[in-house]
Nucleic acid binder design. Sequence first.
RNA 1: GUCCCUGUAGCUCAGUUGGAUAGAGCAACAGCCUUCUAAGCUGUGGGCCGCACGUUCGAUUCGUGCCAGGGACGCCA
Length: 557
Amino acid sequence: MLIRLRQKIIETTQKSLKSFFDGQTMPLVEVEVPADKTHGDFSTNIALKSTKLLKRPPLEVAATFCDAIRAGFQKAGMNDKIAKIEVLKPGFINFYLSPVSLCDILEQTLRDKENYGKSDFGKSRKINIEFVSANPTGPLSVAHARQAAVGDALANIFNFIGFSATKEYYVNDEGNQINILGNSVYLRALERLGQKEEFPEDCYQGQYIYEMADVYLAGKKIKTVQQLQALSQEDIRQFAVGYLMTVIKDELKDFGVTFDVWSHQSKIAGEDQIKKTLSELQSKRHIYEKEGALWFNTTQYGDDKDRVVRKSDGSYTYFMPDIVYHQDKFRRGFEKVFNLWGPDHHGYIQRLSAAIQSLGQPKEALHVLIVQLATLYRDGQEIQMSTRRGQYITLREVIEEVGVDAARFFFLMRLVEAHLDFDLALAKKETPENPVYYIQYAHARTYSVEAKAKEVNLSAKATGFKNLQEAEEVDLIKKIGHFPMILLFCWRQADVFALVNYLQELAAVFHRFYDRQRVVDVEKPELSAERLALINASRIVIANGLRLLGVSSPQKM
RNA sequence: GUCCCUGUAGCUCAGUUGGAUAGAGCAACAGCCUUCUAAGCUGUGGGCCGCACGUUCGAUUCGUGCCAGGGACGCCA
């Protein structure tokens, strides 16, 4: 509702002021929501931006503009939606919502319910979000956990505002890492059968390798070293990948994260496809030979140096199948592709960007989000981690320690590219220090009010609100009205942080309302009915927001 | 050495793409439950927005240069 109104304000303002700029190009009319509510509900800086062009002081321009805008709004029949337009200090023109607009917000929220905030903004455009994509060489770590929380929430939001978002996991089931994995399991299996070999430094050291070896031996009914040696390395590799992918899928599922597509390197970027893409690049003159290797001239697209795609020994670098994989994504019809990577892949962005551009995609078609690491703390003490030694906190441990809700919320509490401190002890605490509960508590409170109202036979209205004029009520309605705009902002920022922040603010406004205004009052049934509607609307927005984040909305706490 | 990110209250961080008196949570202090859940609410204190120039009506935001911290830079994946 506010999105449309804002658009209308922009258009009408533009039309009203056109005559002042005869011939010259008018600056773009921007209408934003001021941070300070004493500056109105919407605000434009058009007068400030025009002072230079019109060669008159800002306040004078603003006053003239303001008159013209008032006349324009009258003509457009917007006076019932906007109660007041005024000029403030340096030259801002501020718009104030009318009671009719506030009523509209509430009615729409109550009407749309779980669809409130939903829009067709994305026009069903196909986008892809690839995240986690951890190599199947061990359980997921906290780094993956944050990516999972972010990727899932982003996809939820994008789908809600009308995109057709596909959540995708790329399984690296080939290459060196997988060979090492296979070898690790093989060596542990030998050890179990009594033949202890030296276990190389670069093999996976974790305890889970033993468990896999046991499962493998039992599954194949292997009793002797000879029987084990008769089986191929390929067989053990396939087992290991399959086993760990099941582990990973289970972990993600318990975290509330599911994927639409699981892509496998072995299927998408096999020898044939690689050759095809390579020759396509060659025909476009992106590939040259030097010192026996094949190089991609990625510098042409801004990379620091050219990159090898095929080594002098004839094998491919990791880059090559990745090119094929991304070509495959675009062939499947995605207009925009998001990749969530850890900070260690930062240097890889330019390279991949060059690759997709060389294959005919615009630069903006690939959006890499670097998801910064989370440092875990327990009571203020940093928890040291080492992936190599297999000493790290897994996703599973985090879930078990603090629960899914707190974990997902904490991972989203900072900008994606900002470093995150995650105190496990704090996330577990049921105290005001913990922001998850603050929001969930607001949601639970709406149910207790409703229950109380039921006891005295009071119920909510659905339309025609006239009595909600207290400051706490007006603030809450406006906050509710902002929800759809916040979701669009998340898209623009490619981040979910704005929604997290918004829900905390909404909860704060709700708690203040709850504290200062009594809802259920048998002496004032009409007012109670309207306030109950406001309670319902608050619940709808909190629930919708938390659902998009993947956090539950308890009815009781 | 080259490139990228970060630098805002005691701590952890926001700051709506250049706007109005720079905000929130935590921590500290002082208050509020015979009334819908006190996991809540109210109030107080706390700032060289790393530093210096520049761009303009206007800079925490953009540019350049320094300072400090972190990270990435392989015919690895």
